[in-house]
Simulated scan of single mutants.
Amino acid sequence: MNQPPVVEWTEADRPRAARWRSENGSPPPRRIAVADDRTRADEAYKLACEGTALLWRGDFHNARQLLTAMARRIDRRPRKTPPADVTQAFHVHRAAQNHRARILGMVLVPLDAAYGVPLHRAPDVREACTRAYGPAEPAAEGGADTVEDSAAATDSLVSLRELLALIGANEWRRKGVEIPALGGDRIHPHYGVFSPARGEYVDLVAEAPLPSQELAFDIGTGTGVLAAVLARRGVRRIVATDQDPRALACARENTERLGVADRVEVVEADLFPAGRAPLVVCNPPWVPAKPTSPVERAVYDPGNQMLHGFLKGLADHLTPDGEGWLILSDLAEHLGLRPHAELLDAFALSGLTVLGRLDVTPRHPRARDTSDPLHVARAAEVTSLWRLAPADR
């Protein structure tokens, strides 16, 4: 793993240095002020808006309360009337999300060399951090080993918001997500791997007529949920691919836990494995926009890169009577980000024809949340399984 960058600040009139950990790639803050239980939310919010991060040295629970208070101040900001144009509304919504993440990401907490949090009433986050960051390493040179106060335990800094996300993700990994298409068995997502909480697309793969039970490719397997569904449906061999090391480890763990590892081979590949199969399945990110965190890469696909890569290579990886299953939401169409005609043109340009399509409407709560600025688009969303084949067969 690459060494995290170093962040520097002054504390108690002495220079400090520590590693900077950020899963979304945010650069180290340029200015850091020390904060504790005496720091008021208004002061913290003002400093964060000005670009100064706050290194927390007080009670951990009070840090969480400060974060909540800062979030309330963001929510109280006067909101402009949402644009009538749905595409512009999407971009405004994303900008507001990014602003919120930036401000709330300014509250920092220290980690020691073993991923302990040297704060009063701090939870044990060692397992969550090890799973996200890898095994703990020796303390950084020039760090807190040379000081005598509480900063002596500081090997690295992380935003409290990210640390809470790590804790939550670790709980999801422990508990798992129940999958009806697997008979109620659970998929356990790793940190940074998209959780199959929206089960409707999984149901489509469980219900579509299989062209063959001999072999299938699962492109961009993620948690391995679709590969597991295909194995439970009787497909004798599935090759599941991904480029993300976390996804590869997650898929292997899940297929082993579900008892289908003898039929699912998880391999690292850029989209397709070698060879051809009578069934090739892909559930690419649904929205052509830039992701801002690792887990968002399963939702946002800049320029539809994965979608077009799958379509362009599909015909060359299908057997003569094979089918490609493309699982795709039309949310991007309702947001004005990808016209329906563009998708159909991409099929034609890739030498593909549509054999059929299965549709399902979303069941997640946001589709019914009228306060959501994107409610109209979400309420109209349909997720489809497109059955594709070479046009010249």
Score class of each variant (00 low, 15 high):
residue 354 V to A: 13
residue 76 R to I: 15
residue 244 D to A: 15
residue 360 V to P: 02
residue 391 A to C: 07
residue 130 T to L: 13
residue 201 Y to L: 03
residue 360 V to N: 01
residue 336 G to V: 01
residue 62 N to D: 12
residue 376 V to G: 13
residue 103 I to S: 10
residue 18 A to L: 02
residue 317 H to M: 08
residue 79 R to G: 07
residue 123 P to F: 05
residue 235 V to D: 07
residue 231 A to V: 07
residue 147 V to P: 03
residue 190 H to P: 00
residue 14 R to L: 14
residue 258 L to G: 02
residue 390 P to Y: 05
residue 225 V to M: 03
residue 388 L to Q: 13
residue 388 L to F: 08
residue 136 A to V: 01
residue 210 L to W: 09
residue 311 L to W: 00
residue 197 A to V: 07
residue 34 V to Y: 12
residue 129 C to A: 10
residue 340 H to M: 13
residue 214 E to F: 03
residue 12 A to K: 12
residue 218 D to A: 05
residue 131 R to D: 08
residue 188 H to K: 01
residue 315 A to R: 07
residue 213 Q to Y: 04
residue 291 P to H: 04
residue 73 R to T: 06
residue 254 N to Y: 01
residue 207 E to W: 08
residue 83 P to G: 12
residue 264 V to E: 10
residue 212 S to A: 11
residue 51 G to M: 04
residue 35 A to V: 09
residue 122 A to I: 05
residue 104 L to I: 08
residue 91 H to V: 08
residue 337 L to N: 11
residue 150 S to K: 00
residue 132 A to R: 15
residue 321 D to S: 13
residue 54 L to W: 03
residue 270 D to N: 10
residue 322 G to V: 05
residue 204 L to F: 02
residue 276 R to Q: 15
residue 269 A to K: 06
residue 161 R to C: 13
residue 100 R to D: 06
residue 194 F to D: 03
residue 171 E to R: 05
residue 371 S to Q: 14
residue 361 T to W: 05
residue 359 D to P: 02
residue 358 L to C: 10
residue 222 G to T: 03
residue 281 V to D: 02
residue 229 V to W: 09
residue 49 C to H: 11
residue 179 I to Q: 02
residue 89 A to D: 03
residue 58 G to D: 01
residue 371 S to P: 08
residue 157 L to T: 05
residue 125 V to D: 05
residue 216 A to I: 13
residue 357 R to T: 15
residue 339 P to H: 01
residue 25 G to L: 13
residue 3 Q to H: 08
residue 35 A to R: 05
residue 212 S to Y: 11
residue 13 D to W: 10
residue 338 R to M: 11
residue 315 A to K: 06
residue 352 L to Y: 06
residue 320 P to I: 07
residue 72 R to A: 14
residue 28 P to R: 10
residue 388 L to I: 08
residue 209 P to Q: 09
residue 228 A to I: 15
residue 180 P to A: 11
residue 162 E to N: 00
residue 293 S to Y: 01
residue 200 E to T: 06
residue 233 R to Y: 10
residue 330 D to N: 15
residue 29 P to D: 10
residue 4 P to L: 11
residue 36 D to V: 06
residue 108 L to A: 06
residue 80 K to Q: 15
residue 323 E to Y: 05
residue 250 C to N: 04
residue 72 R to L: 12
residue 106 M to T: 14
residue 327 I to N: 07
residue 346 A to V: 07
residue 36 D to W: 04
residue 164 L to E: 13
residue 324 G to A: 02
residue 71 A to L: 15
residue 328 L to R: 04
residue 233 R to E: 07
residue 175 K to A: 06
residue 212 S to T: 05
residue 194 F to S: 03
residue 216 A to P: 09
residue 340 H to I: 13
residue 373 P to G: 10
residue 107 V to H: 01
residue 120 H to M: 05
residue 351 G to Y: 01
residue 336 G to T: 08
residue 6 V to H: 11
residue 253 E to W: 08
residue 129 C to L: 11
residue 105 G to T: 13
residue 254 N to F: 01
residue 222 G to R: 04
residue 93 H to G: 00
residue 389 A to V: 11
residue 366 R to Y: 15
